[in-house]
Design a protein around this nucleic acid. Structure first.
Length: 332
DNA sequence: CATCGATGTTGAG
DNA sequence: TCAACCTCGATGG
């Protein structure tokens, strides 16, 4: 699922394609009918991403809160203006015009997450992207508009030209401004929302007070926002920290370094759409890493494989119902 | 075709 | 601690 970077990418897509444009809202699946009726016909006025949650504002103090959870995803279809800050990893996007056709054939996007038409849980997109005529000449005028609903769609937002389908979210609800504020207030700092220096102080002071293991603290959205299971494992490896060390026993400078590393990794994730957590790769290794998820991480999903640094077998254990991967030697 | 598992959170016991 | 939620790609027969 989407860790924090995905949600920021989605928010930028909404900012570009939905804010300021009236949209019809519906709940083909039937589980958000009431909310959809209230929203339908309105234009979004702003969008915020905080940690793993997105808040879309509409007139009259109406806010839509969406949390994708483990399985959720947004599929975009139609004309998609691409936010220039989330150019696709292969760099092609920046070289084309802004109309949505950087869009490599989404079907060919083996990375899933890299696709700009489906952001969330990794999956092959099924959307039909109507190419802009000026880019490829492949405009598919035969495509239906609006696109046929495929599968379970909790919420569909449809402007004149762009369609966004929400599937499988953990949360999709309307909130008042007070409720939005309360939700956000409970969340730990997000480097792309809060002042980074201030966030570092908040994060550090909380972690340094807790008896809870650093491995659990990094996953606690009340301590820091947006980190999930992949970034947790990778941040700890990069810091060479044992996941079981109580937060208060992790040296302050190390805690600060972890925060600063999260700032860095989140920025990379938002730009590229991929959780690239290995630095300093030569160009060839970098290409391989971007092309294959198996080559992108130090320890995540590498149980039993040799540590990339010391060769020791990476271990996996169950912590709070999630898989925790780490190198028992590098992170002793 | 059936089953498993996943980048997550909540709430019951 | 654990099941439930929810969806669908990957995996194995």
């Amino acid at each position: 699922m989407p860790e924090g970077h995905s949600v920021h990418r989605i928010a930028r897509q909404f900012d570009r394609n939905f804010v300021g444009r009236a949209a019809l809202a519906s709940s083909p699946q039937g589980r958000f009918v009431e909310g959809a009726e209230i929203l339908s016909g309105r234009a979004a006025t702003s969008v915020r991403a905080v940690g793993k949650q997105m808040f879309l504002e509409f007139d009259d103090d109406l806010w839509l809160r969406v949390h994708l959870g483990m399985y959720g995803a947004w599929d975009f279809a139609g004309e998609i203006l691409v936010d220039p800050t989330i150019a696709s990893a292969n760099g092609r996007m920046g070289q084309t015009n802004q109309r949505g056709t950087d869009l490599d054939d989404p079907i060919l996007d083996s990375a899933g997450e890299n696709s700009l038409t489906s952001i969330g849980a990794p999956r092959r997109t099924r959307v039909h992207v109507r190419m802009s005529e000026q880019t490829t000449g492949l405009a598919d005028e035969g495509d239906e508009w609006p696109p046929p609903v495929v599968g379970q769609v909790r919420l569909r937002l449809l402007t004149d030209v762009t369609c966004a389908d929400l599937r499988g979210p953990t949360a999709c609800e309307l909130q008042t401004p007070d409720e939005v504020a309360a939700t956000i207030a409970k969340l730990g700092p997000d480097p792309l929302v809060d002042d980074v220096a201030e966030g570092e102080e908040r994060f550090t002071s909380v972690v340094r007070r807790k008896p809870t293991s650093i491995g659990l603290l990094l996953m606690d959205q009340n301590v820091v926002s947006g980190i999930g299971n992949v970034y947790r494992a990778e941040l700890l490896f990069r810091a060479r920290q044992n996941p079981h060390t109580p937060g208060r026993d992790v040296p302050e400078e190390v805690v600060r370094d972890i925060w600063r590393d999260w700032v860095r990794l989140l920025a990379i994730g938002v730009e590229t759409g991929q959780m690239m957590t290995m630095d300093d790769l030569d160009p060839e290794a970098y290409r391989a890493a971007m092309a294959s998820r198996d080559d992108r991480h130090w320890v995540y999903h590498r149980a039993g494989l040799p540590c990339r640094v010391c060769g020791t077998a990476i271990v996996v254990e169950e912590a709070a119902g999630r898989k925790l991967y780490w190198c028992p030697r590098c992170q002793a």
